[in-house]
Design a protein around this nucleic acid. Structure first.
Lengths: 331, 331
DNA sequence: CTGTTAGCGCCTTCAG
DNA sequence: CTGAAGGCGCTAACAG
């Protein structure tokens, strides 16, 4: 095994306490012994066991747990960066875990985090069932949700203006003369899914247009399904002249479908991406600062860590969205 | 504070040992006491402190540390997924930290990981200086490198066929008749940077072509710099008719520059990406399974965890690359 | 300035 | 089947 403080003490011919104090830079250690200890540490390759220290001091683990659905989604990668930004400032490390949109796994993960006594948890819930995210059932570890408001539990949340962004982008399509607009959405059971759909519907209604169910598909779990759904919408008689896609997966799918249909259908979608301005068809996207969401979530959870009594506030922070128009000269 | 095992024991009117045994599913606990304990656990919201348990049992933390340069790079996001894939199978969690291409920070991070007694560390080194990644200086925590072979330390590594992929893609450009081929590279001090350059040079030489320094730029830290470098190459009299870009950042930069120069320059680049087939210019990419790199790295590090004596082998696993041609009808 | 005692939360060992 | 004693590695709280 690794050397312990006892070993160092024996080697330096002092008591473990002197080693402990030296390692803590306690000024009340005689310079001579201090250097003996340091030499012993170097000779033995000793490294203090932080876990044991934490146990004794009753201190925190300085670990932040993050449960997201999929780190490969650039949105979550940015979120992760934002969380790390803030965590780093406080000397904290971040434990990431992917839930894969599975609530059971999400529950498992947060329980594991609680058992490990992480200082706080940031979660992007896979669904609308949040009972397992209640700090009350998680050894009182503070929880902050991202991208979805809490359902029947009392925790903070950092949200995106899903409704506003969708409303604005859809309205832009309408302003450009489109009257029949398709919608590729997310499961209605998720907050994001229902809010974005609500934005689409509200924009249509504000313009006096009716929602046509034949133009709406709301459950495409991957790009291939999105392509298929978009094709189904475009293959109808009297198809829509524009499509709104509720996330990047659907935007990519719609893009492929539109391209194979001649590229004359206008497209708008939630989530910006790197190549949006390099594609060969025009595109409107709803953009936002995902990194900021992570940063704010980390701030909120750290607030609870610093002040454990401040729990029952259930704050909401909404991050704004911005619509960007990429004219992309069509082929 | 959180309830402890003592609290549960008192509540259930048994000894702490009985609680301990019950929580471990030790069959030698009377059903009646067992249910009393379980009830107490539920009533108090008790959760065993895994850190304390680990201390006593001498067990592992079941944490894997990962140091990468930037999780926002899709390559590292995939790598992260691969690592998690394997870690999950073993009930391990993953601590991610970004070094931001900074070796000092990288050292800080791995030392923090060692102090926390993580079971293993996977690192994508920021530079060619690896002394701080030697397990000997890290409380003997096993280390595996990804994407770069170890320099003067004795650890396993999972590599990419940087040379072969670049050679093949460059050769494809040559086969299409290009004689003057630009190169947008990475810092020569990094393994990846020198290997990919070596592949470019070897392909030229194999075809009897001379390397022309005026076509080579090797240090673009972000897309804007890559655009600038590509412009500088293309603005020369008698510019190259093709460009090889050594990573996704450079490919994007080159793409933008080529586009603004009329789009007649052929482009090949290391790293595939989502929209490669949706762009409005043809493109050749060197593709590979980044997730597999992570999976293998996790396997290797777990091998050392299971068998601590197997350290001094310094195995190398090379993940193959594949060249993909995206004809992308030009505008 | 330094060492001793005791104990963080849990579990191994060994008597009952 | 159950409990008491002791200790994992570290450090507060006291002596000296």
């Amino acid at each position: 095994m690794n050397p312990t403080m006892r070993d160092v003490a024996d080697y330096a011919r002092v008591s473990p306490m002197t080693v402990s104090r030296t390692l803590r830079d306690d000024p009340s250690v005689a310079p001579e012994k201090r250097s003996r200890v340091l030499a012993a540490v170097a000779a033995l390759g000793y490294r203090r066991n932080e876990a044991a220290r934490t146990l004794r001091v009753g201190g925190s683990t300085k670990l932040l747990g993050v449960v997201i659905t999929n780190i490969a989604n650039p949105f979550y990668a940015q979120l992760a960066l934002g969380i790390e930004d803030h965590a780093d400032k406080r000397g904290m490390r971040v434990v990431f875990a992917n839930s894969g949109e599975n609530t059971d796994r999400e529950r498992q993960l947060v329980q594991d985090f609680a058992a490990r006594r992480l200082d706080g948890i940031i979660a992007v819930p896979a669904a609308n069932q949040h009972d397992h995210l209640d700090p009350a059932g998680l050894a009182a570890v503070p929880v902050v949700l991202a991208a979805s408001p809490p359902h029947r539990i009392n925790v903070d949340a950092v949200l995106l203006d899903d409704f506003g962004g969708t409303y604005e982008a859809t309205s832009m399509l309408i302003a450009r003369g489109h009257r029949n607009i398709g919608f590729l959405g997310l499961p209605a059971a998720t907050w994001t899914g229902s809010e974005r759909y609500r934005g689409y519907v509200a924009a249509l209604e504000a313009a006096g247009l009716a929602v046509q169910d034949r133009f709406v598909r709301r459950n495409q779990p991957h790009v291939a399904a999105a392509v298929e759904a978009a094709n189904a919408i475009l293959d109808q008689p009297d198809p829509p002249t524009a499509v709104f896609a509720a996330n990047n997966r659907n935007t990519i799918g719609a893009y492929r479908a539109i391209r194979s249909h001649g590229g004359t259908t206008a497209l708008a979608g939630f989530d910006d991406f790197d190549f949006a301005d390099l594609l060969d068809l025009p595109l409107i996207v709803v953009s936002y600062d995902a990194r900021e969401i992570g940063r704010v979530a980390a701030e909120l959870v750290c607030g609870h860590i610093d002040n454990p009594s401040s729990s029952p506030l259930a704050r909401r922070v909404v991050i704004p969205t911005k619509v960007i128009d990429y004219p992309n000269a069509a082929s």
